[in-house]
Design a protein around this nucleic acid. Structure first.
Lengths: 271, 271
DNA sequence: ATCCTTGTTCAGGTAAACGGAACGCTGTTC
DNA sequence: GAACAGCGTTCCGTTTACCTGAACAAGGAT
């Protein structure tokens, strides 16, 4: 369930030969990978543009309050960008509704909780709550991604979008290239996945049995907030398997359901 | 201590007659104020630009993965922007070091905690932790601002930057126009402030006695992380006065100091 | 059925971005 | 200490890519 942050991909290729606004925005994206700032020349090398052009782009970004320049003239993302993103994020009603659920679950089980949505072949984390003084630091980040087919949240959503074997087969055909067996428990076969999805629909929740990362298991419940047939996203409790065994995780589904119902009403699969 | 979010100021003036990258970034900023998205035409009116120009700007933003367009073709900030900001934020070492302190304090006192830095005449919030299932929702946002002279964090930092009466006088002269008496407790006079700052230096912490918002008081401790003379920022415990009286707040300074010392070592004023 | 508004596309003209070169600076090297 | 190398920044003639009004298709409302 941990998102590897390094996957930021300062991909080189895509940032070549940019001009105008595209370069400005590429620079903005790149700056996100340098919390300690980066010099103009190095940045110019990264975007493969003349320093003067990069300098002009940076001026535009500074004018817009999105970046800052510390005394030794290194450039970094600025507080304006943080405010932009955080205030927007806080005002998303989806987040406001669901975060109390995540907090309650995190506190109850003492494990990290997530809310994620499906985006093509990946799940994207929109909210994350860690219990107070948690020893392990989950590497997941808001906006971060993980493959859908081998995560609890992903499977719990896919189960309701790929209801027939043909659906599953087509999905697998489309995204086959991205499907790898991360652990020995990872499901990659069409039949395996179809059976798994059937069972998920049966019980109304999904389990990640260390399918994405060894030692990490997870319980996920899809939420039907705006539609009765297609879930908008899924809530998950992510646990370190050693400390919180799968059985215990599975048996906590009742309490999880109760918490969700208390906060959101009837938003779960009518099993 | 609550930051009023509405102060986003779709200020009209500043977004007039823009072109190129400036317009693109202005649009990005504006989109932050519309969590539910905004139509192209309305947006074009806001930035006072032809729709086709705005359309091109939006294309650039979408190319950079910063915005998205839902089915009814409304534009909103996208997950790419969230990831950009959150992953950058999470990697700021300043945040990583201080957040455990905030969590510990929030849990101990059951009140919201902040970490803020000084930026000209304002404090800016860089971190915020709310205790689990908190009833009152603090309106503060990461990146949000409040005036320095009437907040706990602000005063606790200013106290160590304006050590003489002359310093205070000059500061007041410079920012006089922004100083208003928010409540009957707000200090605005040079002598009052100088005396307050002296006392803060004496005891090593600052109190906001409902000086910014009636009913909200706060205890703030300046942190000397990189310098022994000028604090980098301040940690604060913000409380609803009615529930958590000032006396109790003041008497919790010892425990607060203990927590800070346990996590960060000797980073407080050597009183 | 007609209006108005929406998002989008197109193309000629022009203004604004482009980028090589030069500048001033700092720190390092011989 | 002088020469060097790297930095961020500025300048300016060139030209590219943005600007914009107009036109288009599709809804929604009257």
């Amino acid at each position: 369930m941990a998102v590897d942050l390094q996957h930021t991909e300062t991909n080189a290729e895509w940032s070549k030969g940019l001009n105008g606004s595209d370069r400005v925005l590429a620079i903005l994206n790149i700056l996100g990978s340098f919390p300690d700032g980066i010099g103009l020349s190095e940045l110019a090398r990264l975007v493969d543009s003349p320093r003067s052009s990069v300098h002009r782009a940076l001026s535009a970004l500074r004018r817009a309050n999105l970046i800052e320049q510390d005394r030794d003239s290194r450039y970094r993302l600025g507080y304006g960008l943080l405010k932009l993103a955080f205030s927007y994020y806080e005002e998303l009603d989806e987040i406001g509704r669901i975060r109390p659920v995540l907090s309650a679950l995190a506190q109850k089980f003492g494990e990290t909780t997530h809310y994620a949505v499906l985006d093509h072949a990946e799940v994207m984390y929109l909210a994350k709550v860690q219990p107070a003084r948690y020893r392990y630091q989950m590497k997941s980040v808001i906006g971060g991604r993980n493959p859908a087919y081998c995560t609890g949240v992903g499977k719990s959503i896919l189960a309701y979008m790929l209801t027939t074997r043909a659906d599953v087969a087509q999905w697998v055909r489309e995204y086959e290239s991205t499907m790898v067996r991360h652990t020995s428990h990872t499901l990659t076969d069409v039949d395996e996945l179809h059976r798994e999805f059937s069972e998920i629909r049966e019980v109304g929740y999904a389990l990640d049995r260390e399918e994405h990362e060894p030692g990490i298991s997870c319980l996920a419940v899809p939420l039907f907030l705006t539609s009765k047939s297609v879930p908008d996203g899924a809530v998950s409790v992510t646990a370190v398997a050693q400390r919180f065994p799968l059985k215990k995780l599975e048996s906590s589904i009742d309490h999880t359901r109760t918490v969700i119902r208390a906060h959101l009403g009837e938003v779960m699969a009518s099993s």
